[in-house]
Design a binder for these strands. Structure first.
Lengths: 226, 226
DNA sequence: AAAAAGTTTAAGACTTTTTTAAGACTTTAT
DNA sequence: ATAAAGTCTTAAAAAAGTCTTAAACTTTTT
């Protein structure tokens, strides 16, 4: 699910935007100031940014400028009340990908969000990657790598690792894993997950023998090793 | 020097645009109808397209649609007199990158052209050569070659291969393939894609027997072999 | 030391993919 | 409009790969 950063200081508008995006299947994250936005952006993982121009802390222009300085290519759609051409030109030159003038039409905003996301998917070539210690999970290739060595994960193994790497600090119970990966009620006395974890460990060991990646938390479940 | 295709039937506006672009260091190429535009686009080599919507021959929408069907990623900026939201949404969904309403301001147009070109430079990294190992995909001939041996692909086979070669690192699910090549909802338990993949493999094998090109990723889909 | 929890192995069940072939459909040429 | 040629879809059986189960083994907790 695509994460979208919503940078907007007006709580009412922010809420409305998050609701709209949430209903459309995106994962909105709200930031209420320019500085907060940059903190979030530092974490990475966003597919798109909706950026208001008038912000406390740092202006939208400054946020955009700093973001582009870090060479981040995340698409940015600017929300603006100003409509003069100079502002537009400046924004485009700074690296905005599009802009929407307030008050905006929800459908138009959504269409622009979709167009931008679709296009950046296409252009990225390969999908986003999650990394943990020496392993890199390639979401486009559906596999894990250590350097250039491929683990050759099966679908379930990949999904289990993906789940755990998305939240490396969380301990996942078998119940958690079963419901996320298999998608149904957990039957309890099932050894299936243990077997998959075992095979997953084997494949990770094969490409990166000096680290332990999947840690067991006795009586509770599994997590990524610290 | 960047080639820009100017698709505009009004000779006066076309000339003005070409002059403006020429003065800014681009190489404008004028097309005066939709069909002419598609002929030029078939040759490739354009860094950007300025596309008027009201055209003789084929409408701008049709041109855009056909262009995107061939998976071309060339940025398109639409020139339009219409400003209603529905048109906007449709254009963005069809894959336009931006639009400018007529009458437009020269500076704004230039800024948008620059923004778009700069961005696609960044993202392209290097010019997309549609070759993979020993096979070369000829987008004009709608066929694949190994050396001088022709595969004789059918339209669907060509489109599947084109899709996968455009992103050789990505795994394509059957859903991906169906929606890109057939262009509709995927019905699920359909064997059609498997059969096409099988035939495609057969034809690639016939012209280049020593390599495997289409790899299956179990439980997920297909990708170009590493 | 016993019980509980986790790990590993290997075999068979199960699912997905490949291939083949026949008929439906589409396009092209006459 | 019709015939011919080529392409696409469907169905079914074979092949390949993955998942689950069960049982034996190891580690941790009480």
């Amino acid at each position: 699910m695509e994460k979208i950063l919503v940078v907007e200081d007006d709580a009412h508008i922010s809420e409305m935007l998050c609701l709209l995006l949430g209903q459309s299947g995106y994962l909105p994250v709200a930031a209420f100031s320019g500085t907060e936005a940059l903190l979030h952006l530092g974490q990475g993982g966003f597919g798109l940014v909706l950026l208001d121009l008038m912000l406390p802390g740092k202006s939208g222009e400054e946020v955009l400028e700093e973001l582009r300085k870090t060479l981040s290519k995340v698409p940015v759609i600017v929300l603006t009340a100003r409509v003069d051409k100079e502002t537009t030109i400046k924004l485009l030159r700074l690296g905005a990908d599009d802009y929407v003038t307030k008050p905006f039409d929800n459908n138009e905003l959504l269409a622009r969000v979709e167009a931008r996301l679709r296009r950046s998917d296409d252009e990225r070539g390969e999908a986003a990657q999650l990394t943990h210690k020496a392993i890199r999970l390639d979401l486009g290739a559906f596999d894990a790598f250590a350097g250039d060595k491929k683990a050759g994960l099966s679908k379930r193994e990949f999904e289990i690792l993906h789940l755990m790497m998305a939240n490396p600090n969380k301990v996942f119970t078998k119940n958690n894993i079963y419901e996320s990966v298999w998608g149904g009620e957990f039957w309890g006395d099932d050894n299936t997950i243990n077997v998959h974890i075992s095979k997953l460990r084997g494949k990770l060991f094969a490409i990166s023998p000096d680290e332990e990646y999947v840690q067991t938390v006795w009586g509770i479940g599994f997590k990524m090793s610290d």
